[in-house]
Write a protein that binds this DNA or RNA. Structure first.
Lengths: 149, 149
DNA sequence: CAACATAGTGAAGTGACTACACGGAATCGA
DNA sequence: TCGATTCCGTGTAGTCACTTCACTATGTTG
């Protein structure tokens, strides 16, 4: 009997749903939403950015960034600074509280890792990640194709 | 060098994001949203349900179901029928167009399967699904714990 | 039959998003 | 140096998913 590849796809979708829920609930505990958390995440990796740059990285409209940054600023996780040379632009960067939140996340990720892969052997893990990477490549590649903007 | 379990978790989250995007874009082509599609999916599996029952399966408020069913009804994918014995309740069921949409999805899933797992051997697939199932179990189990409603 | 529970919906509000229009600032060509 | 153009951010307005609260109409039960 052939292992069910369709079943694997189903499980992948299940995973996406369950993982998405987990993420939303975890973030909600910290008073955050997925969209706002992504802003923080990007800022953590790229340092200070203009809102225009943020909108490109997040693949959303500049208008939307305005709203997200507004909320994060009120929450004290982010600051707007005038751009040194371009008086139209605004630089957004993490506050200390924002940076602290990121390090808290990495601690929580360690918990998740232990919980999800605690009893998975190294060889299983290697095989798993190998296939997973292949799937991700196929997924992103199909991603690029139907782009028509 | 130990295979990176943290990296695996990261990839899982990547997967959730990319897969979610794929789903949203695919549904948008059919003029649907994730929430509305889920209604159709549930109806396909459970047959006709009252809105109250739908709200329980979807884990959302009855009020929300009203809105979703409204939209699907306008789109001609779903019908409201009076409940035979309870005059308060309404039975929601798929129209032919709704059912046709579901079979179209399963065809599309076959495409996805081929694209994502086309060049994955049976043994790899078995190993992959084994670990994936374990992860899903761990995920859902953590799901039940923080429930405090 | 009165008291209570239940099914669905109107009203109002939040969060993420979009398109469109506008004001101020940068930039480029003449 | 003066327009014309382009670009940054934001106000306005609208969609979609979702919630809570209040209310009607209907069942159920003592």
């Amino acid at each position: 009997m052939v292992p069910d590849a369709d079943g694997a796809v189903d499980r992948l979708f299940d995973l996406a749903v369950v993982l998405g829920d987990l993420m939303n609930r975890t973030l909600a505990v910290h008073g955050l939403t997925a969209a706002r958390a992504e802003v923080i995440w990007v800022l953590h990796h790229s340092g200070r950015l203009t809102q225009r740059e943020l909108s490109e990285v997040l693949k959303c409209t500049p208008r939307n960034v305005t709203g997200l940054v507004d909320a994060l600023q009120v929450a004290g996780l982010v600051v707007r600074t005038p751009h040194p040379t371009d008086r139209r632009a605004v630089l957004v960067s993490l506050t200390e509280r924002g940076a602290a939140l990121v390090s808290q996340w990495s601690a929580e990720r360690a918990d998740s890792t232990a919980r999800l892969f605690g009893d998975t052997s190294d060889s299983e893990l290697v095989a798993f990640v190998t296939v997973l990477d292949r799937v991700l490549v196929a997924l992103r590649q199909g991603d690029a194709a139907p782009r028509d903007r």
